[in-house]
């Protein structure tokens, strides 16, 4: 009999509506799924290490990264470099500066370039794309006109090869770190604009938007409370991916000599550029090669970290995979 009552209780439990569970929003769900993803955890770990280094690097650095303390020990002409030793864990560069300190301090500039340029692209792109998408979806005839004008402009930006565009911006604005940030950021604008616009258009045709309009909700609220928040998923994913490309592109611009005119300031792209001429492809562990390999590895690992997190986010936010 007790077994039966137990079973009955269980039946009642199953039949009763489960009121106790509290709702979990989309972002909560996504976070929960991210926690279980190895890809996301790896990406997040890499990024955390990178950011920590970028913030506290200058205090951790054992030596002054700009001082040519051991200038007389390095003989570039005779290809004599100083490799890793007790005081200089990654050896010296071609001007006798401590490679390890330069790498630590360089992270800060690299992060700064990546974040600022992505922010430029994100803010400007989202503004253009958001206005364009909202205008096309809800603005009637005038809106369609505004969208056409904005999108043709964006298309022109998109048609230019990104590096070429960046070089042009740098050429116009002169050589500085700000130039690099703006140049890399401008390149990202069309990507973000197109993405947000497309995403908003897709959402604008969703049934819940129609339902909100049928309820009598004002257009402004429909756009700001329904369409925009639901369109942000792909943009957030793109932001992490863009951070990766921004770091690489900033490095490329620095490498081309368009970056900070003060070449003594360490930055991974600049370091790579300066070390390139000593590079020995046959022996990557030779100090001559190590000068290039270290910043290159830094760039690759960081970019990979952002890419991993971006991909994991993309998966976590995909509504098709929601359980």
């Amino acid at each position: 009999m007790t077994i039966r009552t137990e079973k009955l209780d269980r039946l009642a439990e199953l039949t009763a509506r489960r009121d106790t569970t509290t709702g979990a929003g989309l972002w909560t769900e996504a976070l929960r799924r991210l926690r279980g993803s190895k890809m996301a955890l790896t990406g997040a770990a890499v990024i955390t290490v990178f950011v920590v280094i970028a913030v506290v690097g200058p205090w951790l650095a054992p030596h002054d990264p700009t001082a040519q303390t051991w200038r007389d020990e390095v003989f570039v002409n005779r290809a004599l470099f100083v490799g890793p030793r007790s005081g200089n864990w990654l050896g010296l560069d071609h001007l006798g500066r401590d490679q390890f300190s330069r790498l630590l301090v360089g992270a800060r500039h690299t992060l700064l370039v990546g974040v600022v340029s992505t922010l430029i692209g994100l803010v400007a792109g989202a503004l253009v794309g958001g206005v364009s998408g909202a205008a096309l979806a809800f603005g009637g005839r005038a809106g369609r006109g505004l969208d056409t004008v904005l999108m043709r402009g964006v298309d022109m930006l998109l048609a230019l090869p990104s590096l070429l565009l960046a070089v042009s911006v740098a050429a116009v604005m002169g050589q500085s770190l700000t130039t690099v940030m703006i140049a890399v950021g401008v390149v990202q604008i069309p990507v973000f604009a197109r993405l947000l616009r497309g995403s908003m258009l897709a959402q604008a045709h969703a049934d819940y938007v129609l339902a909100a309009r049928a309820l009598g909700v004002r257009r402004r609220r429909v756009v700001l409370a329904h369409v925009l928040p639901n369109s942000l998923g792909p943009v957030i994913v793109q932001t992490t991916l863009a951070l990766a490309t921004a770091i690489i592109e900033a490095a490329a611009l620095s490498y081309l000599g368009l970056g900070n005119p003060d070449a003594a300031q360490p930055e991974w792209g600049v370091m790579l550029a300066q070390a390139e001429r000593f590079f020995v492809p046959e022996d990557l562990l030779d100090q001559a090669s190590l000068m290039a390999v270290c910043p290159a590895l830094g760039i690759i690992v960081t970019a990979l970290g952002f890419t991993l997190l971006g991909e994991a986010l993309r998966e976590a936010l995909d509504p098709k995979l929601r359980g």
Binding site: G23, G25, L26, W27, A206, D207, Y208, L210, A211, A212, A214, L215, G216, H226, P229, N230, P319
Partner: peptide, 21 residues
């Protein structure tokens, strides 16, 4: 529209996924 309302075909699609009930 307060006096004219609508019920939609796709019950999930017609609710904003980010909005609680």
């Amino acid at each position: 529209r307060r006096r004219l309302q609508m019920i939609f075909q796709d019950p999930l699609g017609s609710l904003d996924p980010r909005q609680n009930i």
